[in-house]
Design a protein around this nucleic acid. Structure first.
Length: 230
DNA sequence: GCGACAG
DNA sequence: ATCTTGTCGC
């Protein structure tokens, strides 16, 4: 996989919006769920804004066992400020760097955040998919600007996640643990919504968040700590 | 115009 | 995201 050319990465809001407009038609919102034995990657990023340091992690899990089979990290400078709707420009350079250090190609990448559930239908997960060609999806912890009713209390229950602007279903609120707050699932690239939901259920036998997300979260925090301290 | 707003 | 104490429960 190729890495990001930071010299060509957008630095202004206008340039970022233009880039989203360019990439948006390239999203493929359909595709199969990962097959048994698939390698599913989790990616996440941690920041030290004071020192302008970002650390990303990519962790590869065996979908059958949920065991970590490979992991990689990347450390760099923060490439873009946090602006709602433009999160990809802040997170992706480091994420793609970490993914490029894996020796095996993931069958699916699970992101922290959204894919098509985005004001311009190009959230972090979809953006990553288009840039890399990988199948991607997003699992977010909060509903962003979208709305949904509360799913039933049992694991597996879901309700549509709707964009009030046009009334379209942009994702699903999914209960991954009985009686616990739902997560918000959306398509990234080369996977369908029902398939993305089934992948999340396969990754959440025990906790609210996918095992991929949990592993990537702890690894990027460790990497940031080592980069900043020792 | 103002607030809200993935991480 | 990050800053942060205690607390309830398996």
């Amino acid at each position: 996989m190729t890495t990001v050319d930071l010299a060509a990465w957008p630095t202004t809001e206008a340039a970022a919006l233009a880039e989203q407009h360019r990439l948006r038609p390239l999203v493929e919102p359909h595709g199969p769920a990962p097959a048994p034995g698939a390698l599913v990657a989790g990616v996440d990023v941690a920041y030290d804004d004071e020192r302008d340091v970002v650390a990303a992690a990519a962790v590869l899990l065996d979908l059958d066992t949920l065991e970590v089979v490979e992991q990689a990290t990347a450390v760099g400078r923060i490439a873009f400020p946090y602006l709602p709707g433009l999160l990809a420009f802040r997170e992706l350079p480091a994420v793609i760097d970490a993914l490029s250090r894996l020796t095996r190609r993931p069958d699916l990448v699970v992101c922290d955040g959204y894919g098509l559930a985005h004001p311009r239908r190009l959230g972090l997960a979809s953006h990553l998919g288009v840039l890399t060609g990988l199948a991607t999806m997003g699992v977010a912890k909060t509903p962003f600007t979208f709305s949904s009713t509360d799913p039933g209390p049992e694991r597996g229950a879901w309700t549509p996640l709707v964009d009030a602007g046009d009334g379209s279903e942009v994702g699903r609120a999914l209960r991954t643990r009985a009686g616990v707050k739902p997560v918000f699932v959306s398509v990234g690239h080369r996977i369908g919504l029902s398939e993305a939901v089934s992948a999340v259920l396969a990754l959440t036998p025990k906790y609210r968040l996918p095992e991929t997300t949990r592993q990537a979260d702890s690894l990027c925090r460790r990497a940031l700590g080592e980069a900043v301290r020792g």
